Simulated assay, not measured.
Amino acid sequence: MREEFVKMSSMEEQVLAEQEALLAECKLYKGEKEPETKEVKTEDEAAVVDGLPVASTVLGAPVSRSDWSTGLLCCFGNGGEHFTSDLQVCVLGTFAPCVLYGSNMERLYPGEEGAFLYHCMMYTCLSLGGSLLVDVNLAPFMSVGSRMDLRRKYNLPSAGGCCFGGTCDQESGVGCATVCDVLTHFLCHNCALCQEGRELRRRTLSPSYQPYMPMAPPVVQSMTPQM
């Protein structure tokens, strides 16, 4: 009987020890006790655990201001790798500005169906109609809006200083930039179209570009004779 009593007391002590260990674990998870060797979380790990974005960019934050690839009067671009494209833009802007404007709109509004034909015809009607009726080219009234859209899309500054001596920076406000765009298109219309064409060709792919997707030939199949 004495031996059995000793065994029971030892079992009770073991159960009590296990219960105390469980209680200590519960206190640890509740935050009542911190472990002695705690791993320090890095900033990225802490951000992931806390549900904060790891990246520094914030959705809706203003995009940094970028500059035009070429100047307003750079008829042949910068003489670099885009020289052939810049020469084509210069020729179209000089002899067929309606075609250049339609091409620019096709790149600026890629999802718009028939953008090239529509804008090319509208430009031609305003240009010829204004020249015949009031002896004024009315096309800049339409094309100046595309320059504003282009600047807003890529956050470009107004580049009209070459025509009327002065540029409108970001701090001057939207009104000053709009005036710069209007004066640029009315005073240097063909140069403005060429500058926009060069910019769009450097930033976008051709609408007729189709990515090449190589296809693997089918596997040769053969029939095995049945035994």
Results as ranks from 00 to 15, higher is better:
residue 168 C to T: 00
residue 152 R to Y: 09
residue 143 S to Y: 09
residue 11 M to L: 15
residue 194 C to Y: 02
residue 68 W to S: 01
residue 141 F to L: 15
residue 91 V to W: 05
residue 183 L to E: 01
residue 149 D to T: 11
residue 43 E to Q: 09
residue 49 V to W: 10
residue 1 M to E: 14
residue 126 L to H: 04
residue 218 P to Y: 05
residue 206 S to T: 01
residue 95 F to P: 09
residue 99 V to K: 01
residue 57 T to I: 07
residue 145 G to K: 08
residue 46 A to T: 06
residue 130 G to F: 04
residue 150 L to V: 11
residue 142 M to F: 12
residue 14 Q to A: 15
residue 2 R to M: 13
residue 22 L to W: 11
residue 63 V to C: 03
residue 204 T to Y: 05
residue 56 S to N: 07
residue 26 C to E: 15
residue 119 H to V: 10
residue 49 V to S: 13
residue 32 E to H: 10
residue 158 S to Q: 12
residue 198 R to N: 03
residue 210 Q to C: 04
residue 14 Q to I: 15
residue 61 A to E: 15
residue 192 A to M: 01
residue 147 R to S: 13
residue 58 V to D: 03
residue 17 A to S: 13
residue 152 R to W: 10
residue 63 V to D: 06
residue 12 E to V: 15
residue 164 F to Y: 07
residue 42 T to G: 08
residue 11 M to D: 15
residue 64 S to L: 12
residue 171 E to K: 13
residue 184 T to N: 01
residue 48 V to Q: 00
residue 69 S to A: 04
residue 199 E to S: 01
residue 65 R to K: 10
residue 72 L to P: 05
residue 222 S to E: 13
residue 7 K to P: 07
residue 120 C to A: 11
residue 44 D to V: 03
residue 213 M to V: 14
residue 178 T to N: 06
residue 189 H to A: 01
residue 178 T to K: 00
residue 121 M to F: 09
residue 74 C to K: 10
residue 111 G to N: 10
residue 206 S to D: 14
residue 194 C to S: 08
residue 99 V to D: 02
residue 116 F to L: 12
residue 196 E to T: 01
residue 66 S to A: 12
residue 70 T to K: 06
residue 181 D to H: 02
residue 36 E to M: 08
residue 120 C to N: 10
residue 59 L to S: 08
residue 174 V to M: 03
residue 6 V to L: 14
residue 180 C to E: 08
residue 186 F to E: 00
residue 105 M to S: 02
residue 17 A to P: 02
residue 29 Y to C: 08
residue 190 N to P: 03
residue 177 A to W: 00
residue 20 E to V: 14
residue 186 F to I: 00
residue 6 V to Q: 13
residue 155 N to K: 11
residue 81 E to F: 02
residue 124 T to M: 13
residue 111 G to H: 06
residue 53 P to F: 00
residue 108 L to E: 03
residue 141 F to D: 06
residue 147 R to T: 11
